[in-house]
Write a protein that binds this DNA or RNA. Structure first.
Length: 424
RNA sequence: GGAGGGGUGGCAGAGUGGUUGAAUGCGGCGGUCUCGAAAACCGUUUUGCGGGCAUCCCCCGUAACGAGGGUUCGAAUCCCUCCUCCUCCGCCA
């Protein structure tokens, strides 16, 4: 969430930023709600001050036995309280309205985020490798998987519903191999690994910006909990309501979890295969940093995600998302897109974002640096996929497929597959 | 699931209705002393919001003692609900 004081004092700049993101917030409503709230608070606190002063004298009057005067003062406070009660209601109303408006506002884009309206305006930063060339007609992973007997789409529908996946035999093992390879690789590069709940409460989902605006994207339980759409939610909220020591920053965390997404509104998109499903595995990276270093940390995080693709030998490109395409909480986002022969193009496999203080303000994540400043400041949070496991499997199957329908395995995965070098 | 006992400032720990945002101790920070350090001594030590001043410094007000509601002129202190921790019993991967 944005700082409403900052919004008030930088109205035009914020307005421009919102429009660059295609977010049509109501500037005038903000101004009037903010003014109303401050007026009510002013009046309310004046009355509270009067009440406190009068109450104090009541105690003294009663000690000195001046019952009559005390009763008169009590009556006076009662009438003040009646006014306070009404103003409290007004304040709650004003704050709720302002809160709803501000909570619906996305983060301000970084200066370095390219301006643009849609994904067509994203900027390619670099590519690694080149699109895989075949001297036969390559198959899509949704054909390869069933043919090899390692992905069972039909039974997954029977067990759950469409857009769920059932892996069999070496497919299930490959899933585990990819997870372990990714988690081990990040851990070796300094990321502390966590294992976390995959159900979160409303405060947790609010902290990362998933609630209240994107509730429809989440699976909910009957007791008011939510299945996490990504481990980012848990890793970021680990330090909710905490003050971190600047000397400990940056913190580099990672975790493997299943991820659950309703995919409301994406019916008809990527309907086949492993690309867009309700449940998938992901190894996630999260960082906590100071404002001074967070953008450098973002570059480092992208490099760590790229490292996985390079070790797997999968061609990819890095793009910088434009203002119109970055996510709600992000100030700057790089997407890694892996080459997918079935799409004859690149497909997102990782998204790395600097959320600056946007999540930290919601989640109350601060840090202290006694030598540099008094008090506390909001930390910056970053998150990135490292990587989406299902899409990685799809990319491996498609890019490593052989003419005979078998699939070679990337060398780095062989130890995780118990020495198996080929499926099929 | 049953019974009982707790949740106070970075930590420990007082405080059962009236200048208590909160004693005391520890820790932290600043200073005195010292060649330096330790010890000792002195001072200081939360955050949100509103306003002033101003621009990272201070002042005023207000709110916050797990969360929310209630009683009262006034609540950390009394009542209710919820959350959570601990102990014992039961159940269980």
């Amino acid at each position: 969430m944005l700082d409403s004081k900052f919004v008030r004092e930088n109205l035009e700049a914020v307005d421009a930023a919102m429009r660059s993101r295609g977010n049509f917030w109501d500037k005038d409503e903000f101004v009037s709600l903010d003014a109303a709230r401050r007026r009510v608070i002013g009046e309310l606190e004046t009355l509270q001050s009067q009440r406190n002063a009068t109450s104090k004298t009541i105690g003294e009057l009663m000690k000195t036995g001046l019952q009559q005067e005390a009763e008169a003062a009590k009556e006076q406070v009662r009438s003040i309280n009646a006014q306070i009660e009404q103003l409290e209601a007004e304040r709650a109303e004003a704050e709720n309205a302002l809160d709803a408006l501000v909570m619906a506002m996305p983060n301000l884009p970084s200066d370095t985020t390219p301006y643009g309206q849609s994904e067509n305006d994203n900027v390619e930063i670099r590519t690694w490798g080149s699109p895989t060339v075949f001297d036969f007609a390559p198959k899509a992973h949704w054909d390869l998987g069933p043919e090899l007997g390692i992905i069972d789409f039909e039974r997954a529908v029977k067990l759950a519903k469409s857009r769920f996946i059932l892996l069999a035999g070496l497919g299930a093992r490959l899933e585990r191999a990819i997870i372990n390879f990714m988690a081990d690789t990040h851990a070796a590069r300094g990321y502390k690994e966590w294992w976390c709940p995959i159900l979160g409460n409303a405060d947790t989902l609010t902290g990362t910006g998933n609630l209240p605006k994107f509730e429809d994207d989440l699976f909910k339980t009957t007791n008011g909990m939510y299945l996490i759409p990504t481990a980012e939610v848990m890793l970021t909220n680990i330090h909710r309501d905490e003050v971190l020591d600047a000397a400990a920053l940056p913190l580099h965390y990672c975790a493997f979890t299943p991820c659950f997404r309703e995919e409301a509104g994406s019916a008809g998109r990527d309907t086949r295969g492993l690309i867009r499903v309700h449940q998938f595995d992901k190894v996630e990276m999260v960082k906590f940093a100071t404002p001074e270093t967070s953008f450098d940390e973002l570059e480092g995080m992208v490099a760590d995600a790229e490292n996985i693709l390079q070790l797997l030998g999968l061609p990819y490109r890095v793009i910088s998302l434009c203002t119109g395409d970055i996510g709600f909480s992000a100030a700057k986002t790089y997407d890694l897109e892996v080459w997918l022969p079935s799409y004859n193009g690149y497909k997102e496999i990782s998204s790395c974002s600097n959320c600056t203080d946007f999540q930290a303000r919601r989640a109350n994540i601060k840090y202290r640096d006694a030598a540099a400043f008094k008090g506390t400041r909001l930390a910056h949070t970053l998150n990135g996929s490292g990587l989406a496991v299902g899409r990685t499997m799809a990319a491996i199957l498609e890019n490593y497929q052989q003419e005979d329908g078998s699939v070679l395995l990337p060398e780095v995965l062989v130890p995780y597959m118990g020495g198996i070098t080929r499926i099929g």
